[in-house]
């Protein structure tokens, strides 16, 4: 990424968002078309026009591809925005739902609720939210108690995350069937996703995204540091709690159908942050779109690379996203010294 390209993105945040939206749309279409059995664009149009339930294409699109692509879009947007919120609120670039135990908290309660509670559409998302909120509150509580130094905050988060992960492992040991509906819960994946499981989480994510977007300005001011934010008239404590609550809801909802897909919550906000610095709504929108794009693409690769076999999305995300992120870090370092 040379500095000319970067500065173009810096100057036109709206254009960058539009570009991301377009790419996401294309990726979603590709995600519907490609897979173990390819489906053509004409098939999609036919299905949309006729609504014939009996064709193979119809069933593949409706029961397999659409839920998966929707899952990728929703989980990507939710985790990326959740990560952006956490990074700003905790003033820490390393904070993300995967790192600081929010995802693991959600995962633990999902595993427990699957093990002991009767199944219903809303128990899993609710448990996921409660677990995520628990993770956030523990990290926040500890960070306030020890004076919120950036390193101790992340260390606390990592510790909390590990404790919750151990809890998940214990739960799965005692109730081996608890997470049967999830093929790749620990790494994160969409292969067991159905519309029934997706729908309640989709509502939570839609509401969470709207709430986050409406608080974009406050988020921006909060990122100036709590003293400065307070001196600008922002009720800091209340706003932080509200934003953390939204971040927990978003991450919990994503975990409820995709498992512990943590990396995207760190990756997408960081990539976007490096490409644009407009702040405000554009930044949040770009994070949401970037996360959605990343996961849909990774899911596409996961399904097509070794078809008809499938990799868990989490594996592809780490293999593709990790090197890309490192490349971006190195490139920017070079760009900055020449600037």
């Amino acid at each position: 990424m040379n500095s000319l390209q970067t500065s173009c993105i810096h100057k036109h945040p709206a254009g960058f968002c539009l570009l991301l939206a377009l790419l996401t749309l294309l990726a979603a279409l590709a995600g519907i078309c490609a897979g173990a059995v390819p489906v053509s664009l004409r098939d999609i149009l036919n299905v949309l026009a006729s609504g014939q339930a009996q064709t193979a294409a119809y069933r593949i699109i409706l029961y397999s591809r659409l839920p998966r692509v929707a899952a990728g879009l929703l989980a990507g947007a939710a985790l990326a925005v959740s990560g952006t919120l956490l990074q700003s609120v905790l003033a820490n670039p390393l904070a993300s739902p995967g790192v600081i135990g929010v995802n693991a908290g959600a995962g633990l309660l999902v595993a427990l609720s699957c093990a002991v509670l009767p199944a219903s559409a809303w128990t899993v998302p609710l448990a996921a939210f409660l677990g995520a909120a628990l993770g956030v509150l523990i990290v926040l509580g500890v960070s306030e108690a020890v004076g919120a130094s950036k390193i101790s905050l992340v260390l606390t988060g990592v510790a909390v995350s590990n404790i919750f992960s151990a809890g998940i492992d214990a739960a799965v040991t005692f109730f081996p069937d608890a997470l049967n509906g999830y093929s790749d819960f620990r790494i994160g994946g969409f292969s067991g996703v159905t519309a029934v499981r997706l729908l309640p989480a989709a509502w939570v994510i839609a509401a969470g995204l709207l709430a986050a977007f409406s608080l974009a300005q406050q988020l921006d001011v909060l990122a100036l540091g709590s003293e400065t934010a307070q001196s600008l008239g922002l009720p800091v404590r209340r706003t932080r709690l509200l934003l953390l609550f939204i971040a927990a809801a978003l991450a919990g909802a994503a975990v409820s159908f995709s498992g512990l897909l943590g990396f995207v919550g760190l990756l997408a906000p960081q990539i976007v942050r490096r490409l644009m610095n407009s702040g405000g709504l554009a930044q949040l929108l770009a994070s949401a779109l970037g996360g959605a794009l990343l996961l849909v693409l990774c899911d596409l690769l996961a399904r097509t690379l070794f078809r008809p076999y499938e990799l868990p999305v989490g594996v592809v995300l780490s293999l593709v996203g990790g090197p890309f992120f490192i490349w971006l870090l190195v490139q920017q370092r070079g760009g900055r010294t020449h600037a």
Binding site: A223, G225, E227, N277, G279
Partner: peptide, 12 residues
């Protein structure tokens, strides 16, 4: 108020 310690944000 101009605070002494502040995080330098990712904005212009």
């Amino acid at each position: 108020f101009m605070a002494q310690s502040r995080s330098v944000p990712d904005i212009t």
